[in-house]
Design a protein around this nucleic acid. Structure first.
Lengths: 226, 226
DNA sequence: AAACATCTTACAGAGTGTTGACAACCCGTG
DNA sequence: CACGGGTTGTCAACACTCTGTAAGATGTTT
């Protein structure tokens, strides 16, 4: 598991890196906010520890940027500023935990483990099959089955169906679906998603004119109702 | 989302329960460790807040037992014992966060949301459901429910209802509502808001002629009375 | 080069939000 | 208690945005 540590104080940074490496993590470091963002983009760590007080874009800025690049990577803030207001800002920005300096090594490890266990508990299940209504979907085989009829799917189809499955009842915005199935930074044309939904419905809906699996939510996106 | 609150001090317990309920969580309470375990088995909450110092099996015992029953339910410890050693024991036992007494309402909510967000991706923050009278509103789904009747809502409907919910009993000026649901800089025509309120009432008020959720305040705007 | 999948363009049709007209209503005033 | 100015409720038409989908363009694999 790869961890990005962004921290300007050399002693703290190297101490953290060493500590995490001794626990079996592979560590990438950054000395300021700007570098943190670049390293994040380049190395794609599974986990991020951010100092708040850093030169050249602080931790908040870096956090916001990283969240915009990847909505689900776990982020832990490290800071000398331990007042409640700072913690709240951190949580609002989507931080997963908050460690106040000075901290003990044991505490850091305990928190990293807690967050890691939480966030990656389900990772082994990405390839497991799942059900969408009366459709059984096999991601690994890129196909779905209804009764004994087989339907071929593209990886993107599977990504869309999985997203819908993981958020039953939720009206998912087009941008969310796009980000999930195409990637955050894709410059997309307006009709591409509709086109895919249209094609997908033709194949998975018994009656594509009256969709029951992929419902459209006008002005927002699409929804799956169990 | 169902939350189990285990806390022996009655004042704290009821305060927490009320707070969480106002945020749309359904709350189950327990006054000691033994009861916490029973309630957990019986009610299967999605989330647990445990006080450490409780009679009849403390929070640590309860946490261990709950973890053995369910390895992935999020657990937050609440305690007056805020020394590091306690937090570490908590994390080793699989706690997801730790709140030290005395705590502020905002901090509890921020932490609950943070943990909820990382455990149930879609349920965090602004997506959490809330109640307006006998109406349960699900922002993420753009729907509301009364009993088992479902009402479809637009994002703007939800914005208006949320504003009303967040300011119970307050007569909100039309301009405030407009700014919140349309955006500050929108140049609006006089009848637009009325029209929306009218349409909204038709859908959410049992008797649109005698509104009970969205009351008119002549010369000012609208108000929600709990 | 053919076959295939994916993306873009273009346009029609559906669905919403907005608006102005007017009726109904509230409330202070004579 | 009736009046009148101002405020709110509602209707129906309009304008506009959003969505579905066919057909052509582009890119990729074999």
């Amino acid at each position: 598991m790869k961890v990005l540590v962004a921290e300007d104080d050399r002693y703290t940074r190297e101490g953290l890196a060493e500590l995490l490496e001794s626990e079996g993590y592979s560590v990438v470091t950054a000395v300021d906010g700007q570098e943190a963002i670049e390293r994040f983009q380049h190395n794609r760590p599974d986990f991020v520890c951010l100092d708040i007080m850093m030169p050249n874009q602080g931790g908040y800025e870096a956090c916001r940027k990283i969240r915009s690049l990847s909505s689900d990577v776990p982020i832990i803030f490290i800071s000398a500023k331990s007042e409640e207001v700072d913690r709240l800002v951190g949580f609002e920005l989507g931080a997963d935990d908050f460690i106040a300096k000075p901290f003990s090594v044991r505490e850091v490890l305990a928190r990293v483990r807690a967050v890691a266990r939480r966030c990656f508990a389900a990772h082994g299940e990405i390839m497991a099959s799942f059900k969408l209504g009366d459709l059984q979907i096999f991601p690994a085989e890129l196909r779905a089955m209804r009764g004994d009829a087989t339907i071929e799917l593209s990886p993107r189809d599977v990504a869309i169906l999985r997203l819908l499955h993981d958020h039953p009842g939720v009206a998912l915005e087009r941008s969310k679906i796009f980000a999930h199935a195409w990637g955050e930074s894709y410059l997309h044309n307006s009709r591409t998603l509709d086109q895919h939904i249209s094609q997908l419905r033709k194949r998975i809906e018994p009656d594509p004119k009256q969709p029951r699996l992929i419902m459209t939510v006008h002005g927002v996106g699409y929804r799956y109702d169990p």
